[in-house]
Nucleic acid binder design. Structure first.
Lengths: 126, 126
DNA sequence: ACAACTGTATTAACACAAATAGTACATATG
DNA sequence: CATATGTACTATTTGTGTTAATACAGTTGT
């Protein structure tokens, strides 16, 4: 059974869910450099999805540098997961800054923000 | 000329853009309690958009409690902009917490996060 | 009273993207 | 050689967003 799952009832396109799922597995460390992905056909069969949809997702992932595909060989996680994760951190920093700016625009109390953030930080500590 | 604008070339649905735009105007204080919105027909004419699309956006806004509509009278900003803005703050706090949690999961340095946040906070000060 | 405007409702048609279905090719693997 | 791989292509279906054209009931201002 593959780690890759999908919700057919979601409003977000299946191929996009696949992209997000693979990314998440890379971020979580469940997928490491040069790990093999399920073949287009086997994953399609397992998820009861058309192979074309799987390939579309793999194409998008390859375009983003998350995976690479070798004809007649298979598809594999990028050898540079380090860079992929670094890019992700950058995205999150941008999101963080934007959210803070929006809170400030709403005239939110800086003390409250600090409190919430400290709480969120400790919330899920090991 | 109305404050409400739309980008026809965007991939996000027009009615959704309208919803987001009205919300943003409420958050920014440009729209206040019981302010009148453009009529369905006039806004449709001004933006060169079908009236049905405008009404769909207004329906969504009413369902969210952002506006209210009176048949034969017009559509107006909710009398409770305070609660609307408070809800928005809540959304932003949730987003903030989630982003922080994701950064932590990526093993990001807490010092770096603090630095970026302090920078983002001062970035757009008056 | 009346013309002009309001929100609302309905039905039909069109456009586009997502997804499916089916087939085919070239290549690697054991 | 049989099997599995990524890739390519066309056709079709499906759902959603958008437009189009009316229509109704109620208010507003003159």
């Amino acid at each position: 059974m593959s780690l890759i799952t999908v919700d057919p009832r979601s409003r977000t396109p299946i191929y996009e869910q696949l992209v997000d799922r693979v990314k998440a597995l890379v971020y979580a460390g469940d997928f490491k450099a040069d790990d093999p992905l399920p073949s287009v056909r086997s994953l399609a069969s397992e998820l009861a999805i058309n192979p074309n949809t799987i390939q579309r997702a793999y194409n998008a992932l390859e375009a983003e540098g998350i995976i690479y595909s070798l004809p007649a060989r298979g598809s594999f996680i990028s050898g540079n997961t380090e860079g992929v994760i670094e890019s992700r951190k950058n995205e999150l920093f941008v999101a963080l800054s934007r959210t803070l700016r929006q809170l400030k625009e709403l005239g939110c109390d800086p003390e409250q923000i600090k409190t919430v953030m400290d709480l969120a930080w400790r919330e899920t500590n090991d």
